[in-house]
Design a protein around this nucleic acid. Structure first.
Lengths: 206, 206
DNA sequence: GAAATATCGATAAATTTTTATCGATTCCTA
DNA sequence: TAGGAATCGATAAAAATTTATCGATATTTC
């Protein structure tokens, strides 16, 4: 594993989650070792590139004639991605997508704990999937109390900027935005756009 | 706009949806022209890169002192992305996420028509958001009748590979997969992974 | 136990992508 | 109407990324 002096290239870092997904699939099949050639074939990459990527994020070398040990690799990749320490997050908007995010159990695998959701509509307040849904105006209080810095924005387009502003003033510093809207945020707040329509459109156009 | 001899770089193509999202936001604000410097500032890119990107996908040049005409740009970007011809898609899985996808009205903006959903559970069959939900075993028939080639996979992890196989044998050639599972597909079938947990995890780790 | 072979890791070359520089153009203002 | 200022587009340089090549090594097979 490289230290800070030799940072991992962005292009490599962007591929790590895909490696992790693939390796977990192999591990579930009971595969113990996997070669760079096999990874490359299955994932549509080049074997040389795979070896280079893995050498940058994993300390343990691959073994000639065998390849890489799957479980060791998974452990190293998770450590690289920071899945070994926990982060709290909240969901803003308890409609279809918001509820799906609230109930989704897959976050636990990535060191993320989704605490609760918020919504302006009184009829959405209550609980879903075993987690509470609060009125949006309690966001500042609850975010501050739990020191939550990450929010998932799952509100309609028209409400997105307002909800974003509320989140930012409540101390949120990173936003995963599902609304198809470009958000204006202060310096230092990170926004990641996850436009499901774009994802589908790109797939169609390939 | 470049022709086939000079294909648009992959890195540029990957940024086009972000440009489009930004430009639509500006258009909604009533902005008529926008400079490369303004785009770069708001989107966190370099002005030179923005000009290069835009010159590759838009035929109309920017004008000194004014910048680029927003509506013209939007039109060109949409044409580049293929949003000017329609594609049908189906959703497999009518749980929380599947229903959200079925009811989401944003696809229309991208030339995508979500036809219906499928689910194995009888109690999910019926309709949602004005669109029908069929039993999964009707997928081959309906996909063939409508010549649908694109599917959104929104089923639990344990059902993903089986649903994928069913989709492929029903003639589906492109899959947007939300299940956190690596799918094995025949040659020629495209899979795009959209792991919401990974998206959130990456945001946390940045 | 020795040869064959599959695989790795490192170095180097090629390609792609980003960034810098600068003259040309057009609009705004006095 | 002339000067100034902001912006574009093109060319060139720099950086990043991908791909190719090859000797070294460990496992398998005979």
């Amino acid at each position: 594993m490289q230290s800070m002096q030799n940072p991992v290239p962005k292009a490599t870092a962007a591929r790590i989650p895909a490696y992790l997904r693939y390796l977990k699939g192999e591990a579930a099949k009971g595969v113990g070792c996997v070669s760079s050639a096999a990874i490359a074939r299955d994932m549509g990459l080049s074997a040389v590139g795979v070896r280079k990527d893995l050498s940058l994020v994993s300390s343990r070398p691959g073994r000639p004639r065998l390849g890489f040990e799957v479980r060791q690799l998974i452990s190293d990749l998770e450590k690289f991605l920071g899945y070994d320490h926990w982060t709290d997050a909240v969901v803003i908007g308890a409609g279809g997508l918001g509820r799906a995010m609230l109930a989704y159990d897959g976050f636990e695998n990535y060191g993320i704990h989704v605490v609760c959701a918020f919504d302006v509509a009184p009829e959405k307040v209550g609980s879903f999937g075993g987690k509470p849904v609060y009125p949006l105006d309690r966001l500042p209080q609850i975010a501050a109390r739990n020191a939550v810095k990450v929010a998932v924005l799952a509100v309609p387009r028209s409400a997105a900027q307002a909800a974003c502003d509320a989140a930012v003033s409540a101390g949120i510093r990173a936003i995963l935005n599902f609304a198809p809207v470009y958000l204006t945020v202060p310096e230092g707040v990170k926004v990641r756009y996850e436009d499901l329509a774009v994802a589908l459109a790109q797939l169609c156009g390939e």
